[in-house]
Amino acid sequence: MSIPLSLSVNGKAVTADVDERTLLVEFLRHDLALTGTHVGCDTAQCGACTVLVDGRAIKSCNVLAAQVAGAKITTIEGLAGADGTLHPMQAAFKECHGLQCGFCTPGMVLGALDLVAHHPHADERTIREALEGNFCRCTGYQNIVKAVQTGAAAMAK
């Protein structure tokens, strides 16, 4: 069954009719062609699909599009400036080499933004624990931790 849906995605109002079974990640990737949100698992473990819903990081593979009706969604495509200037957290990932294949990266960056919003001065241990829900198979996490610290400091300025 198709249901009407309105919400805001990266600052733009979106209205659509979606099958009620549609997951948020499917809606973003297929209906809106926002393919920066990735799918890495089927058990809500990997965090590659992380987006911000009203500022909170959630796994978009684990929520129906219909459940976020009316919400403000931010995906990785919504962070950089119109001229391509990176958000300080994105810039920190580049500066600190916090990504290799890039597949986990959108989820990591958005997860990091949620973390910084709640713990602007998080230490290494806190960051490592907060990243529990995001797998990276490439980096060994060390440079991701550094990137989150660097990004947080840049955002505090």
């Binding site: 920066g36 990176l86 580049k94």
Partner: peptide, 8 residues
């Protein structure tokens, strides 16, 4: 990194 960090 630019494309990976911006979802491109």
């Amino acid at each position: 990194d630019q494309r990976f960090l911006t979802g491109a």
